[in-house]
Amino acid sequence: MDVQKDQVRGLRERKKDDARNRIADVVIQFMADASEINHDVVAETTGISRRTIYRYFPDRDSLLSTAFTRVREMAGNRVVFPKDEQALLGTRSIYSGLDRIAPIATLVRSTPQGRAMRLSQKRERQESYLAVAADAVKDLPEEDRVLATAVLQVLHTTVWLEMRDHWDLTGEQMGRATSWAISVLLNDLRSRQGRPLSPDSR
């Protein structure tokens, strides 16, 4: 009897996951089409009821956040917010993953809808990088801790489009360059002994 309940529960969860993925895929398609993204148009396009979509995603941010998570999953299972310094240094898999979904990754970096998707996870992103960088920046003045952490985050995930467009680099090459840069910065941050980032800082 318990096995049967587990099977039913498993089937229900698979149906939910399938619906969520269909919704996320439609949101991504709207980004490509430069269409307005809201619950009504998603319901109309997917055939999933508006009520169900609101149950899964109660507001626009949650809808966009799920779509952005779906984009990251498409790029590979290592394209996630880092949990430790080793993951922070592991940029090759991230940039190679973005190469694999280059058309979508470009839209995420260059359209208003893509920007909205990225901003939907701003809090989660900040919390992750602040936690990972905390040890390296702990002796800096408070403002400099944020500045240093922001630079580490940009190198870890954000420079893909610029390096691709302006330098014709592959994800593998970007990974080598950014991993080196992050390593240099972490070493510098630990050797500063509380000195501010700028020589002229007071």
Rank of each mutant, 00 (worst) to 15 (best):
H39A: 07
S183W: 06
N38A: 05
E162M: 11
V184W: 10
A43N: 06
R72S: 07
D135S: 15
G97H: 00
Q7A: 12
M117Y: 01
S96D: 13
V146A: 14
I104C: 10
L63Q: 05
A131W: 02
T91I: 00
M117L: 07
M117D: 05
S183T: 11
R202N: 11
I101L: 05
M117N: 04
V159N: 06
R145W: 02
E73N: 13
S93V: 13
Q173I: 01
Y95Q: 04
K16D: 14
R20Y: 05
R92P: 01
V26F: 00
A134N: 11
A116L: 02
Y129W: 05
V42Y: 02
N77K: 14
H39R: 07
D59W: 03
R51Y: 11
P141Q: 07
N38C: 04
T91E: 03
S179T: 15
F30D: 15
Q86D: 13
R51D: 10
A75T: 12
D200P: 03
F68L: 07
R72K: 14
M1C: 15
E36K: 13
E162Y: 10
V154Y: 10
D17W: 06
P103F: 03
F81K: 13
L189V: 08
Q86M: 09
A19P: 07
Q4K: 09
V42D: 04
Y129P: 01
R22P: 01
A133P: 00
R22Y: 02
T178M: 03
A181E: 07
L169T: 15
Q86A: 12
I104R: 12
D84S: 08
L63M: 04
S93A: 08
N77M: 08
D139V: 02
L64R: 05
I94Q: 01
E36V: 13
A102Y: 05
E13N: 13
M163F: 08
E143C: 06
K122F: 10
L98W: 03
M1F: 14
A136V: 03
I104D: 08
A177T: 14
V159W: 00
S191G: 11
N38E: 08
D200H: 12
Q86G: 12
G47N: 04
Q29I: 04
D99C: 01
A150L: 11
W167L: 13
L152T: 08
P141M: 04
R60C: 00
T69S: 14
T170P: 02
R190T: 07
I48P: 02
R92N: 10
I23V: 09
A177M: 14
Y54E: 11
G90I: 02
D144S: 07
A148P: 02
R9M: 08
W167C: 14
Q4V: 12
I53K: 03
M1N: 15
A102L: 06
